[in-house]
Nucleic acid binder design. Structure first.
Lengths: 224, 224
DNA sequence: CTAATTCTAAAGAATTTCTAAAGATTTAGA
DNA sequence: TCTAAATCTTTAGAAATTCTTTAGAATTAG
């Protein structure tokens, strides 16, 4: 469970960091909207805690930016001024909760945990890597909210890679997983090659990155 | 499970020593950064407990030194001053946990054990020798975080040596292990020689050390 | 029946593995 | 101690294997 703090007061950041780290959250921080935007662009966070009063621009844009990329990220707004307008605007844009400074860390924690529980309940057994989201139930892959059509074989192949992330999987293991008994050892791997190529192409042309590496003579390895 | 205490207060060292020894940890100590650096260079520790306020230099360098060598070593920082900066810096550099002096030995123990559990969970079925790490599932060899590409035959040969560390293995044993039935006694060992040479070269050009000694007329012996 | 998916086949690119030969080192025996 | 034989190292390139890509045929699903 990954948190991002967007906040420029180091002491507050540190306090949140240590508090949530000790609760088992993985924490990162950004001290400006631009830095936050960059981090959000490159990674995926489960909950973003966002001080909208930062000096370098409007936090509202950041909120819509997050929502554009990924509907599942929880957004919790911090605000120094108890402004009704900010509150309404940010909730309208898609924030999930709102807290006014100053606050007790325990209250923030309660709200973050509430968000966290909601996310778990909502059945977010979705799988994420970088900015990709996989919805196993509907067999859908998307990159930053944009759906990428995968065929069934491609989807199964990707799932198998994700289960075996960072491990080398042999072609026969892949074949066995995709075709079961129907796959003969005598068969050649031509069709594996073809699906591999197509899956690679779809992943890389969406993200610009390569995820599946060939380990010559041994198999393939998925990393992210 | 091997611990290293980097600490210059003899009483504290003695206390930690007896406490963790009785828990089954193997303990060593260094009373300065330079001594610690030397020990870390020569051995591999599972967890390093590091007082960053030692007088002879910056502990930050030591942290990055450890991380450069081996990503899996746990690092726990002790600090006399409750300095926020030290904490942030050291955590940023790759320390795993932080504890402020003075502390109860029980709290340190709890944190060390937490680190230990995390390490076990992380699948430490990885194999280490000197600063080399082998990840059998990802078929990866690395030296101080840097990956060394091995071909399949080289990888299998290295694994065979590690299983038979400090023993003399004959060429026919190696050949049998690498080629199974396909290897004929009538065949010559030319190809074994070639793979041996290539493996040796990769190991030595990464580390500057030779690990595989020729035992004339009998075979080869791997030591580290 | 149509469209999408899956598979086949073949060319060629990339990488590893093997072969062969020359040179170096070690051992054993004179 | 010297020499010949045996064993090992190294090199370079040939051969074999493994992988990528393409295009189109066969199959399947809607």
């Amino acid at each position: 469970m990954k948190l991002l703090f967007v906040e420029d007061e180091p002491i507050l950041v540190e306090e949140m960091n240590s508090y949530f780290s000790s609760q088992g959250f993985v924490c990162e921080q950004a001290i400006s909207f631009s830095q936050a935007a960059q981090k959000i662009h490159n990674y995926r966070y489960d909950i973003v805690i966002l001080d909208i009063t930062l000096p370098d621009g409007t936090g509202m844009e950041l909120i819509s930016g997050i929502r554009e990329k990924d509907i599942e990220t929880g957004i919790l707004i911090l605000s120094a001024k108890n402004s009704l307008n900010d509150k309404i605007d940010s909730l309208n844009l898609g924030a999930d909760d709102y807290l006014t400074k100053p606050f007790y860390i325990e209250e923030l924690s309660a709200r973050v945990n509430a968000l966290y529980r909601r996310k778990i309940l909502k059945g977010s057994q979705n799988i994420h890597f970088d900015a990709f989201t996989i919805e196993p139930f509907s067999k859908k892959l998307s990159y930053k909210k944009q759906e990428i059509g995968l065929t069934r074989k491609e989807f199964e192949m990707l799932m198998y890679f994700l289960v075996n992330k960072e491990r080398v999987v042999s072609k026969s293991a892949i074949a066995e997983h995709l075709w079961g008994d129907h796959f003969d050892q005598q068969d050649n791997f031509d069709t594996v090659y073809v699906h591999m190529k197509n899956l690679r192409k779809k992943l890389s042309s969406a993200s610009g990155k390569d995820y599946i590496r060939t380990v010559y003579g041994m198999g393939y390895k998925f990393s992210c």
